[in-house]
Design a protein around this nucleic acid. Structure first.
Length: 286
DNA sequence: CGACAGACGCGTCAAATACC
DNA sequence: GGTATTTGACGCGTCTGTCG
């Protein structure tokens, strides 16, 4: 993270920059040269530096003393002016971090979800998401599927969710009449979870039955445990989402504060430059 | 006063990432 | 490799301001 050099008293932050210090930042790299600041004729630049710039590391909060005669930034008293180093990257997300992946996360970019990609492509017949379609097939790993006793006169079929989103239903035998098996190939569980639905003789679907690995469904204890786990997960995620939103708002506030500070500094520097130009022109005409 | 739009927060899902 | 955490995206409900 590059350091920002702030002149004492001129472009400072009267209210205090909340972003001025980041906990993890101990060293600030500042280019210290014998700066020969002049007002250029083309009025585009006010600072000239020698070709051989030597960067040195200084501790954050240290004060740089700049000899007055060569500087265009002048103070009214004393022959030296102080430049205090403050941290340009102030909040946590902008702090010094070598991890590129973390940086990527810090700029709040993510690749689109598969659902969004699918929607953009207009493909996929399975409506995923809450309440989007009556033909919705829940492919979530912990879908709310519970165990229930199935009448023995049901027939077994196999229903496979193929990538295009269609559901294939195949008869599996006559022993368990009316049981339909949905093989969720796009489920997150490896190999796909097998879901069985009981179907009545009139074709109506009844309650789902979960069987892992094609076995017989677990008892009510397993279903209870799964439901409890799901509740715990949802609760945790609920709190995590709250915290995430809070952090995001905080981050945005920090950025807004930073914009305000930099705008103030910019204004002050422009004013200073204007007055110095006037002074220079006045001395030139004398 | 009702309709409407926009902002906002929440819960949830899903994907990426961190961690063990 | 499996689990936990983080966070963008989505849908929903509520609140508030504006307009006819």
């Amino acid at each position: 993270m590059d350091g920002m050099v702030e002149e004492n008293g001129t472009a400072g932050n009267p209210g205090g920059d909340p972003l001025a210090h980041s906990p993890g930042d101990t060293n600030t790299s500042v280019v210290v040269t014998s700066v020969q600041s002049v007002i250029q004729a083309n009025q585009q630049s006010v600072i000239q530096t020698p070709a051989n710039i030597q960067p040195v590391q200084i501790q954050k909060g240290n004060v740089i003393l700049v000899s007055k005669p060569n500087s265009v930034i002048q103070t009214t008293q004393g022959s030296l002016q102080t430049l205090q180093v403050v941290d340009a990257g102030s909040d946590d997300s902008l702090s010094n971090d070598d991890d590129s992946t973390r940086k990527r996360r810090d700029i709040l970019t993510r690749r689109p979800s598969y659902r969004k990609i699918l929607n953009d492509l207009g493909g996929g017949e399975i409506a995923v998401g809450r309440g989007e379609s009556s033909s919705e097939v829940d492919t979530n790993e912990d879908s709310e599927l519970s165990s229930h006793s199935i009448p023995s006169h049901y027939q077994t079929h196999t229903a496979t969710v193929i990538p295009a989103g269609a559901i294939q239903i195949a008869s599996q035998g006559e022993t368990v009449q009316g049981l339909h098996t949905l093989t969720m190939t796009n489920a997150t569980t490896a190999g796909g979870a097998i879901v069985q639905y009981a179907q009545g003789q009139d074709g109506q679907f009844f309650v789902p039955v979960v069987t892992q690995g094609g076995g017989i469904a677990g008892g009510p204890i397993i279903a209870e445990d799964q439901a409890r786990k799901r509740e715990m997960r949802l609760l945790k995620n609920r709190e995590a989402a709250r915290e995430c939103r809070r952090k995001k708002k905080e981050y945005i506030k920090c950025l807004e504060n930073r914009v305000a500070v930099l705008e103030n500094q910019n204004k002050a520097l422009i004013e200073e430059l204007k007055s110095l130009k006037e002074l220079y022109c006045q001395q030139k005409t004398d």
